[in-house]
Amino acid sequence: MSSVDATGLAHHFEDLEQQHESATLGMWAFLITEIMFFGGLFGAYVVYRTMYPEAWENGSKELDVFLGALNTTVLIGSSLTMALAVRSAQHGKNRQVIGFTFLTMVLGFVFLGVKIVEYHAKWEHHLIPGPHFMFEGHLGGHEELFFALYFVMTGTHAFHMIIGAGLMIWVILKAARNEYTPQHHSHVEMIGLYWHFVDIVWIFLFPLLYLLGRHGHASIGH
């Protein structure tokens, strides 16, 4: 019953502009829910960081800043290609949409690949929270809490990237059928917004997890 006509206008909207505005507002509203979702994790981070500053410092030093910085660059690069894909869609250039979206996906997978390398190193160093966790020889400490949050936060973030990559396959399929026109390209814009959001989450995660603890007590306010 939700029929869509040749220009891509669904039956219950008056015109494409109203449809596009609705999609945009819907996406922004969805991103607000995402902020609240990650907000719970950031809240837990703030509480425990305040309670156990030293554990946070120790944990932070175990993370690989080089790989973290590399991934930051990769992700910012992918935001650029995503923005270019959106621009191409706005001009109705479907072949460019395919190219830029594909590039974005590739960069996304590079990020996830680097993340796997990092996770693997944590596995080898017994830094995965649970019965086998070991930190500097002693079993379980407040460092374990740091790593629990590290894995939950970066894992949730990675999960969002996988969803994003899935959505991009959908965009590529649609662009392959030349569906995007200067009037009708909401999907690409919405997925662009989503991807930038995922990017921004990382922009917060990187300093909070990798950088803040590395300057000793001064940065924590002792």
């Binding site: 829910t33 995402e34 609240m36 979702f37 990650f38 907000g39 719970g40 994790l41 837990a44 509480v47 425990y48 309670m51 156990y52 554990a55 929270p129 649970g130 019965p131 379980g140 400490g141 407040h142 374990e144 809490l145 629990a148 949050l149 894995f151 939950v152 949730t156």
Partner: peptide
């Protein structure tokens, strides 16, 4: 609602993997 979602997700993770976020033994609160 997103906040309860992440909260019960943490409880689920805590039960399945004992990550310690709400467990005083690990310093969780």
């Amino acid at each position: 609602t997103p906040v309860i979602a992440i909260t019960v997700a943490l409880v689920g993770l805590e039960r399945l993997f004992h990550i310690g976020i709400f467990d005083p033994t690990y310093g969780g609160d």
